[in-house]
Design a protein around this nucleic acid. Structure first.
Length: 387
RNA sequence: GGGUCGGUGGCAGAGCGGUCAAUUGCAUCAGACUGUAAAUCUGACGACAUUAGUCUACGGCGGUUCAAAUCCGUCCCGGCCCA
């Protein structure tokens, strides 16, 4: 298929076909996994984080290494998140952790207490120094429980910051003499919380910024959390926001999500995804299992709930199920986690063994579970690509 | 044999007259996790009722007291010291 749902992206580190999923290698690794583990799972692109790498090991080291690809020895497409999410997760959630002004964000390092200032310009400079293939504008993602007024302020700030980012982006392109082939792709982020009109305003504002600066965004992201305060998937907002984004641009659903959320976002027009779920859930002992007899389709199935529950046990029509491998019922279960899976875990070990690894708290359990869940995500994305 | 210290819920280990069904940790049982401050966090954890409440419990038995895991006597068991 060659319709707009199956785009090809050329990056300096290789070609990508949409839709695709990127695990979060926030601090230049997917926790517990080696590059070999990543490769075997079939994962190609990954996400690294501007703020966390800026803190540690610091940009001097990354630059000396020759960029983050060389530092990690990972030579496939990497996208850097701008640090915008940390404005949300560190500061909005706990104002003592820093200060947000129109000009800049002052972070107090969660580990050392040290203060660091990030501006939109600085975030872009760092991302160029990282040498990633795709970058994201520094944005202000407000929590969904903020008042509409406050979310509107975050929208306007995000638009102003996007403009500063794009101007800085152009500067860096010129300064580093990058060509259209060697330049990283740049994404802006649409904020607006649960308000369709604010999402629309943000998307329009970002489109306008591109015109003013004279460079199109390669893609637009969905910003902040895509589930509301009750934990419900914000279906209308996701659908509308996708429609506000120019059709030939990439649509990046940042932080999405559960397998169910990814599939329905895909059906709404979103192309790219990243999330900690497969790895974090894996580390915490929850494994995803594909139900081979249920098709990967959600949009027309009213029986699929919007509940936030990742563990969609109640839903017999879901295309996947989960197991919490720590549960005592697996203690003497000598079958594979998923007999249809070809990952290192399922090919070599039993549920009982994985249960044991989790009970003794050995990191091998977390590694194998992460590998399995990433394999699940890779195969799920492959199914979507072939649809 | 003498002396001494101790025996608390699956384990370790607090409590040393009432506010104790008993702190805490581990273990156990479940749950949560969505651009990673997450190998994290939350709840349950004597029995029955499962809101209220009722019962049985801090080695055994007996006592003191309005009231005892907490004080006294005695028995059983264990550690250490002396013979």
């Amino acid at each position: 298929m060659s319709d707009f749902r199956h785009k090809k992206i050329v990056t300096k580190s290789g070609l990508l076909k949409t839709p695709f999923f990127m695990p979060d290698a926030t601090r230049a690794l997917v926790k517990f996994l080696s590059n070999d583990d990543i490769k075997k799972s079939g994962i190609v692109p990954m996400v690294v984080n501007t703020y966390h790498l800026f803190l540690q090991p610091g940009m001097e080291t990354i630059k000396k290494a020759g960029g983050v690809h060389k530092f990690m020895n990972y030579h496939k497409p990497l996208l850097s998140d701008s640090g915008g999410y940390q404005v949300f997760s560190l500061i909005h959630k706990n104002p003592k952790m820093g200060k947000i002004t129109d000009r800049e964000v002052i972070f107090r390092s969660p580990t050392s207490g040290e203060k660091h200032t990030i501006t939109p310009e600085k975030s872009i400079q760092i991302q160029f120094d990282l040498g990633v293939d795709m970058m994201v504008c520094f944005d202000d993602p407000p929590p969904n429980n903020y008042s509409k007024e406050n979310i509107a302020l975050a929208v306007e700030r995000t638009i102003r910051w996007a403009k500063r980012c794009l101007i800085e982006y152009n500067k860096q392109i010129k300064k580093r003499k990058l060509t259209d082939k060697s330049r990283p792709l740049i994404f802006s982020v649409v904020q607006g919380g649960e308000y369709v009109d604010l999402r629309k305003r943000c998307a329009d504002g970002l489109i306008e910024v591109a015109k003013e600066v004279g460079r199109d965004w390669d893609g637009y992201g969905f910003g902040a959390r895509h589930i509301d305060n009750e934990g419900k998937f914000m279906e209308n907002i996701l659908r509308s926001t996708a429609s506000f984004i120019p059709e030939n641009s990439l649509r990046f659903a940042l932080g999405v999500g559960t397998p169910k959320d990814i599939v329905r976002c895909y059906e709404m027009g979103w192309d790219m995804f990243d999330c900690v779920i497969p790895t974090r859930e894996g580390r915490h002992g929850r494994l995803f299992l594909r139900k081979s007899n249920v098709p990967l389709k959600i949009s027309n199935d009213k029986s699929i709930s919007n509940d936030k529950n990742i563990n969609d046990k109640k839903n017999g029509k879901s295309f996947y199920e989960t197991v919490s491998i720590r549960n005592s019922k697996f203690k003497n279960d000598f079958t594979p986690v998923d007999k249809n899976c070809d990952c290192e875990l399922c090919k070599n070990h039993t549920r009982a063994y994985l249960n044991h690894l989790f009970r003794i708290g050995d990191p091998l359990g977390m590694r194998l579970a992460s590998i399995h869940n990433l394999r699940f995500y890779v195969k799920m994305m492959k199914e979507l690509q072939e649809m």
